[in-house]
Design a protein around this nucleic acid. Structure first.
Lengths: 351, 351
DNA sequence: CTGAAAGCGCTTACAG
DNA sequence: CTGAAAGCGCTTACAG
C-alpha cells in the first residue's frame, strides 16, 4: 500500500487506516481521481470509475467523513433534540414523541441526511451548538412544552441565527410545525354530534403552556357554538401525569352534576385516564358516554373500548419538519406549518 | 479578526467561520495555546485559560468537531441502528424498542458520547460502516428479530472486526445483551402459582427466531415441571401482527377444550391481543383467568384490567449495551449480558 | 479526462 | 508554561 505505517513526526499513534491514496495506488490513478470517481463526478471516464470502485471494494475503503466534512463544510446530518421533563426517565417520555422521532429520522433519511439524536432536560446536559461545532446543518427540537428552561435555551440558540425548527415550544417565536389542531378538534366534535351526542364536555386547559391544547379547546368552543350547543370546560390540574389529570377531571365532572353524554379530551393520555374513571363509575362507553381523544397513540388501540381519536399524520409531520429545516438551511421559503390529521374511529364512540 | 475572508485559491466558498486563530488573536496568545486551554490541558496557566475562555465566549467560538475528529481519530459518538420490518411505518415499531433507544441515548450521554440514530430495513438503506467512515466508535443494533436480511448484513459487519453489540439478533454469534428471560419467566409463572392458578397455558413459539421467546418458554416448562403442573403450549401463527397472534392463539386455546385458568404470554403485544380475545369470549380476568405478559409496555397500563407483566430494567439495559460496547472499543472485557427484570403487578392477576 | 497541490481547522510532538 | 509547525484525509480550483 502506498502509505507508510509510521507517518511524520507529528502524527498521533493510531491503527493503520486505508485512505484514498491506497486506493489510488491499487487502481493506478491519482488520489484526486479516486475522490472524483467515488463521488460520481461525471467527468471521470467509466473505465476509470470502475477500476477505482473495484480497488475501493477490494481494500474495504470507506471515505472518512470527518475529512470530507472538514473540507466541504457540509455535514449531511440533522440534529434532533427531544426535550424531557427534568429528571424524567427516558422510558416515560410520551410515546407521541417517540413516534415523531421515528418519522423525523425516516424523513431525514429520505432526504439523504442522518440524524444525531439526544435527550436533554436540565442545564447540565443542554447542548445545542450543532452548527458551530459542525456536527449538523440544522436542529429539530421536539418534546414537552413544560420544560421552560430547556425551551428558553433553544429559543436563544434560534435567536442567534441557527437553523432550528420545533414542535411543542411554549412560544411562537421559534419556527414551528404543529398538528392541524383546529381541523382535528372540529372533526372530533362534529363526529360526536353526528353520532347523536349533545352534552359534550371538553377536558382541557385554557392556561396551559401547551399551545395545541388551547388551539383544540378553541376549536371545540367554535364548533359547539356553531351547532348551538352549550360548551362545558373541565380544567385539568397542573403538575400531574396526564392520565391522572384525566381521571381527576372526569371525577370532578361527574360530581359537578353537569349532565354529559360525551367527552372530548385534548390528548390521548388524558383520554386514557378518562376512560378508567368512567369504568370506575360504571358509566358505559360508548352507549351512555362517547369519548374522543387526540394524538393517535397506539396504547388507545388496546383499551376497552378502543379509543376513538384524532391521529396526526406522523409521516407527514416528520417530513414537514425536515423539509422546513432543510429549506431554512438552503435559505429558501417553506410555507407548510401544519401536519394533517384524520379521525381514527375505534370503539369509544357509537356507530 | 486574524483571518481573511478570502482564503487561498483552493478554499471552497463558504460563510465566514470563527476559528481558534481568531480566539488566539483576541486573547493575545498562540493558536496552540487556545487549543490546549479549551481542552482543559493542566499545563496551561489559570490566567491564560481564563483569558482564552473569555475570548471564545465573546466570539461565540465552538470547536469544529470535524477537524478535531480528523486530527484525533476519536469521534465521541456511538451509532444506533434500529432494525424495522421491511417497509414498516416507523410509527408502528414496537414501543419496546423506542424505550430501549431512549435508554441507550441516555446511557451514551452519561458516558460522554452522542448517538447517531438510524432506522434501517431493506438493502437500499442498510448502512453500517460507521467506524470506517469515522462517524462513530462503535455500533449498537436493536430491533425486530424477524428481518433476517438486515441481521445478516450486520453479522457480516461484526464478523469483519467492527465494534458491534446487539439486542434482538436471531443468532448468538454477534455480541449480545438480552433481558434475563429465564428469571423473568420464572417470576411470572411463580407469581401465577402463588395466586392460586394451576392450569397455566403458555402462548409462545418453539421455532420463532426470537431467542427470547424460546428462553421464556423453556423457563416456563422448567418451572411448571418443578411445581408438578402440566404445561400446555399454544403456538403462535407466523407472519401476523403480535396482537393478532395473541387473539388467534387464545381463540384456539378456548376451542381446544384444554381447561385453563391462566395464560403466560411471552410478550406484552401478544398479551394485549389475548386480553381482547378473553373479553370477546366473556371470560373474566383476573377472576376466572389470570394473565401475565412480558416487556413492561406502557400500553398495558391502560387496558382493563391493566396487564400484569415482567418489566426489563430499561435503564440498566441501555447502560449494559453502552458499557459493553465501550469496553469492546477499549479492548477490555465486559461480562454482563443480561438486563435485570422485575414483576410489574397490575390487574390481570388475582390479589 | 487526469494530476499536483492547496487548504479545511484542529491536536500534539518538539523545542524553548 | 507557550509557540511554531506538521499532519489528520479529504475536495476542488487550476493547469494540462
Amino acid at each position: 500500500m502506498g502509505q507508510e505505517l509510521i507517518k511524520g513526526r507529528n502524527a498521533p499513534p493510531r491503527p493503520y487506516r486505508v485512505t484514498s491514496f491506497d486506493v489510488a495506488a491499487e487502481a493506478g490513478v491519482s488520489q484526486s481521481t479516486v475522490s472524483r470517481a467515488l463521488a460520481g463526478d461525471p467527468v471521470v471516464s467509466e473505465a476509470t470509475r470502475l477500476r477505482v470502485a473495484e480497488a475501493a471494494r477490494k481494500l474495504n475503503y470507506h471515505i472518512d467523513e470527518n475529512a470530507a466534512r472538514l473540507r466541504t463544510g457540509r455535514t449531511g446530518t440533522l440534529a434532533v433534540v427531544l426535550i424531557c421533563r427534568p429528571g424524567e426517565n427516558r422510558k416515560d417520555v410520551n410515546p407521541f414523541y417517540f413516534s415523531l422521532l421515528g418519522s423525523i429520522c425516516a424523513a431525514a433519511s429520505n432526504r439523504g441526511h442522518e440524524t444525531l439524536v439526544s435527550f436533554q432536560d436540565t442545564a447540565e446536559n443542554l447542548s445545542g451548538r450543532y452548527e458551530e461545532q459542525r456536527k449538523a446543518d440544522g436542529l429539530i427540537v421536539i418534546g414537552t412544552t413544560e420544560n421552560r428552561e430547556a425551551w428558553a435555551y433553544f429559543q436563544e440558540i434560534a435567536g442567534s441565527g441557527a437553523n432550528v425548527v420545533c414542535w411543542g415550544a411554549p412560544w411562537d417565536d421559534l419556527p414551528w410545525v404543529r398538528s392541524d389542531n383546529e381541523t382535528g378538534a372540529r372533526i372530533a366534535v362534529e363526529h360526536l354530534i353526528a353520532r347523536g351526542y349533545r352534552r359534550i364536555a371538553c377536558i382541557a386547559s385554557e392556561t396551559s403552556p401547551q399551545r395545541q391544547f388551547k388551539e383544540r379547546y378553541d376549536a371545540y368552543l367554535a364548533c359547539m357554538a356553531e351547532a348551538g350547543l352549550e360548551p362545558h370546560l373541565v380544567p385539568i390540574e397542573k403538575g400531574l401525569p396526564r392520565d391522572e389529570q384525566g381521571r381527576r377531571a372526569t371525577r370532578a365532572l361527574i360530581t359537578s352534576g353537569w349532565e354529559f353524554d360525551a367527552i372530548f379530551a385534548v390528548c390521548d393520555e388524558i383520554a386514557l385516564g378518562v376512560l378508567e374513571a368512567l369504568h370506575e363509575a360504571d358509566i358505559d362507553v360508548p352507549d351512555k358516554v362517547g369519548l374522543v381523544g387526540f394524538d393517535g397513540l397506539r396504547a388507545g388501540a388496546h383499551v376497552t373500548p378502543a379509543l376513538t381519536t384524532i391521529e396526526p399524520d406522523f409521516q407527514a409531520a416528520g417530513s414537514i419538519l425536515v423539509n422546513k429545516l432543510l429549506a431554512m438551511v438552503a435559505g429558501e421559503e417553506y410555507e407548510i406549518l401544519r401536519a394533517p390529521v384524520r379521525l381514527l374511529e375505534r370503539g369509544s364512540t357509537r356507530k
